[in-house]
């Protein structure tokens, strides 16, 4: 039951992320990306990581993608506005893409099937356990990443001000 559900959701994730790339209209792309994030939320729930699921839901679907959509709606991009690319750029793009594909296929072939990871505590993803782990074992990395976010915020405000 849970395994077939996983395959269904995994299929949907890949399907919608492909649609993100292949749709012409940027607003449609963003909407497909939102659906892709939603399937990720379902993956987290299947992994019993409820907190991560809901945070992914709030932060990615509820905040970041709203901003993306906001900007794209203001820009109102369409095909006419898209700059024509030269043939040289197109050829370079094809070559680079092929190289990436060969590397990816090669590395996937080189992989062995790993043993399934068994968690010591299957309830690790619940809020209480996650909080305890974050604030006991990983306190320093947690605080440093919060500082990083703060500095990014200050930088964004500085950039937005016209005369700093």
């Amino acid at each position: 039951m849970s395994q077939s559900l996983f395959y269904l959701i995994a299929f949907l994730s890949i399907f919608f992320s492909l649609l993100v790339i292949f749709t012409k209209n940027p607003v449609h792309s963003v909407l497909y990306l939102i659906i892709t994030f939603f399937t990720f939320t379902i993956h987290y729930i299947l992994l019993n990581a409820q907190f991560l699921a809901i945070v992914n839901f709030i932060v990615y679907m509820g905040a970041i993608m709203v901003l993306f959509l906001f900007v794209l709606m203001l820009l109102n991009l369409n095909k006419d506005a898209e700059p024509a690319k030269s043939n040289l750029l197109k050829i370079a793009g094809v070559v680079a893409g092929m190289c990436l594909l060969v590397t990816l296929v090669g590395s996937v072939k080189a992989l062995n099937v790993s043993n399934p990871v068994v968690l010591n505590n299957p309830n690790l993803g619940l809020v209480k356990n996650l909080g305890k782990v974050l604030f006991n074992e990983f306190l320093l990395p947690f605080e440093i990443s919060s500082l990083l976010l703060l500095s990014a915020m200050v930088g964004a405000v500085l950039l937005a001000k016209k005369e700093a």
Binding site: Q50, F51, I54, V55, F57, I58, M61, G62, A63, V66, L126, V127
Partner: peptide, 13 residues
């Protein structure tokens, strides 16, 4: 057990 956050998520959607 994340009820409040669920409501918050729905609001943001």
């Amino acid at each position: 057990n994340v009820g409040i956050l669920y409501i918050f998520g729905v609001v943001s959607l």
